[in-house]
Write a protein that binds this DNA or RNA. Structure first.
Lengths: 282, 282
DNA sequence: CCGTATTACGCTAGCCGTAATGATG
DNA sequence: CATCATTACGGCTAGCGTAATACGG
């Protein structure tokens, strides 16, 4: 039986050619390597090196052994990787969402429900990535704007979100009781770039608008507060009530601007996540 | 980095389920295993076992780790096997022959030429096995009854062998100056079963004969000496001159009964085996 | 109680690093 | 003589086995 450290040293010798170089790379000493390689030959009962008095080189069989050593190390590393990955997965509850608002609701609930576990939330713009992730186990649950087929999935509606335009009071549309998205055509609109499906939705419905994207939420809020530009706001928001004094929220009448979010898991895992679903309600 | 002995112990635990059983199987102690498994968990930073006070069992991740451990051990064992196999090959000169006579000539020459190496001779009945073996490196050289294509192979004729029938003096054909194989039709013929292509040859040329096969050369000689039955003899034989008093050798006139043996190697290895070929001559 | 796992405790085999030696270009 | 491999030597750690402890069917 060849211990791992010797296999590693053999592979390194094939790569770095001299013991002194390997000693540097593996942070050990020349004598230690010299001895280990002798021990290796002894254990195998096979000469692996061409030796002259101050030179060592792998012979043909040594090269073969080194190639195999590399294979063993790969398996070794893959073992460690797979185990740590599995452990990480076991310690994190991972879900995906089509919009940010459901995450504000879900993550606190999950953190409390699965105490000690990391809750990982993944925001996506498109459904297919989420559904695929639910299928392959990347996500335990996902959040969409509609239920999935009852025979394979368990769905529960748990949140409404309704989009409004946030307009400067000076804006020509600011006095309207309601709007359609397309009426914002041609405007310069402030928008956050990480808002899931909303991003695709507004870009599709207002193709002629000029969107000013911002990644940082706090920065965006600052800009919205000061800039005389249209933006969006919804009923679901931590700081909903604190809307800027010089702005007015005008509801959007588009069907797609009023959504219900569904939390979805595989039917086979319905029992496993029963606690979560009973904590969710409209 | 996980040392091999721990990986082995993990795999064994998956197989044998309890530390005490593993301790027996691996010829070590319970405490050693207990510590090693704790060390393994420590190194990975992952809990691999469900523990109660006097019971240990692999958990889900532990099972995963054990499966990977098995893979690592396979690679490990394959490394050792491959290296030893390569070394054995390097220490043995292996050749194949279509008949036994060339081996009596070749093996002593090779033993002297490659001193310290084992000479392995392989007798085959058919050419294709030999040629394939020469191609894939199983044989360094092969012996056939004819040369192979000059562009790929180097051939050298080094031995004639001529088959005669060995008949009891009382036999009806014993007085004939020469014979054809087919004239032995219907006879009970003593024959050695390990004589390469000769075996197929005589069986094909004398389809109606009844062959009495014998594996042991010495036993066959004894039987030939005492039994009043036809057999075969060739000019190439260690005990050629000592033919039984009550028997007579009648030459066979079939073209196939008079062969020239060629020693053959790949053209690319012609230089490597130059010493051998120059030691061979008719 | 017997079988099991774990902890405690010396012991020592084995591996390490430093230093010395030898060879080579 | 700078560089490399090997040998020599003393130190020390990591893993071992025995024994003791603790738990469970």
């Amino acid at each position: 039986m060849i211990e791992t450290y010797i296999i590693e040293q053999l592979a390194a010798l094939a790569e770095y050619k001299t013991l002194s170089r390997v000693a540097e790379e593996l942070h050990t000493s020349q004598p230690a390597l010299s001895r280990a390689m002798q021990k290796l030959e002894g254990e195998l009962g096979v000469t692996l090196f061409d030796r002259s008095k101050n030179r060592i080189a792998l012979n043909e069989i040594g090269e073969l052994a080194a190639r195999h050593a590399q294979i063993v190390l790969s398996a070794h590393n893959e073992m460690i990787r797979a185990v740590k990955e599995a452990d990480r997965r076991r310690r994190t509850f991972s879900y995906g969402s089509i919009a940010p608002a459901p995450m504000w609701e879900l993550t606190p609930i999950l953190s409390q429900l699965y105490m000690g576990m990391t809750v990982s939330a993944d925001l996506q713009e498109t459904e297919d990535v989420l559904i695929k992730g639910l299928e392959n186990g990347t996500y335990s649950v996902i959040v969409l704007t509609h239920p999935l087929g009852e025979e394979k999935y368990f769905n529960k509606a748990f949140l409404h979100e309704k989009l409004s335009a946030l307009l400067p009071k000076s804006h020509k549309l600011a006095n309207r009781p309601a709007l359609q998205l397309q009426e914002l055509s041609g405007e310069n609109i402030l928008i956050h770039s990480k808002i899931g499906f909303w991003y695709s939705l507004v870009k599709e419905k207002i193709p002629n608008a000029n969107f000013l994207e911002q990644n940082e939420l706090e920065t965006l809020r600052e800009i919205v507060k000061t800039a005389e530009l249209p933006s969006f706001i919804t009923n679901v928001s931590t700081v909903n009530d604190a809307l800027p004094k010089n702005k007015v929220a005008v509801p959007l009448t588009d069907r797609e601007a009023d959504v219900t979010f569904y939390c979805i898991c595989k039917k086979t895992q319905q029992n496993e996540f029963a606690a979560l679903f009973s904590a969710l309600h409209l």
